[in-house]
């Protein structure tokens, strides 16, 4: 599934990184704890989270996430979005779906769990 398909499927809004929506998502990782993202995420996955602070964006970069989707209609403060636009091309979406439903819907469409196999 591409990010563009996911956007349509979840009725999500793109906050930045419109140019990268053709990225293909095979795996996803759902989490609200930065340390757990740093410890357990593999790479090239879609990060699903309720956290919308600047740490999440930095963390997404550190773990080489393909994109980030904020759940429950949450969105970061405007200044956070501005910083991302300036420094990064990572696509960021927001959906009204809660994390549970977001995972359920993507899982039903064949998105797999992200698993760390090295590190």
């Amino acid at each position: 599934m591409t990010l563009r398909e996911i956007q349509a499927y979840l009725g999500a809004e793109v906050l930045c990184g419109e140019g990268q929506l053709d990225r293909e998502v095979h795996e996803a990782f759902a989490c609200d704890l930065i340390s757990e993202m740093l410890a357990s995420a593999g790479s090239h996955m879609l990060l699903i989270t309720s956290l919308t602070n600047a740490h999440v964006i930095h963390t997404a970069e550190v773990i080489d996430a393909l994109g980030v989707i904020f759940v429950g209609g949450r969105r970061p403060a405007e200044d956070v979005i501005e910083i991302v636009k300036k420094n990064s091309s990572i696509p960021i979406l927001t959906t009204k779906c809660q994390m549970f439903d977001c995972c359920g819907l993507l899982f039903a469409r064949g998105v797999q769990a992200d698993r760390k196999d090295s590190l």
Partner: peptide, 8 residues
Amino acid sequence: MGFGAGMG
């Protein structure tokens, strides 16, 4: 904030 889970 997503930190302080004792994983650092």
